[in-house]
Amino acid sequence: MFTQRKFYTPYVSPTDPCPPIRIKSYETPPQLYLGFQPPCLPQYATAKEALYRGTLWPALYSPYESPYKRGDTGE
């Protein structure tokens, strides 16, 4: 299974004026990996949940939280 967020370590100069963010991240949502959507993908159990998520299929669901809030960009 793929991850929906990737991390990388940009170059940091010893003379950078702001305190460096050593690990940065970017989003890689599921549509990048699915290819042509296969038939009969599993669906959410209820219409209510599908409407709430914005998609019928968990395979296409992309949760998003600010990387600054989750604190998972730190070391």
Binding site: F7, Y8, L32
Partner: peptide, 9 residues
């Protein structure tokens, strides 16, 4: 390049 960005670290 897109494939590289999609790769798992």
């Amino acid at each position: 390049a897109a494939e590289i960005l999609k790769e798992e670290r």
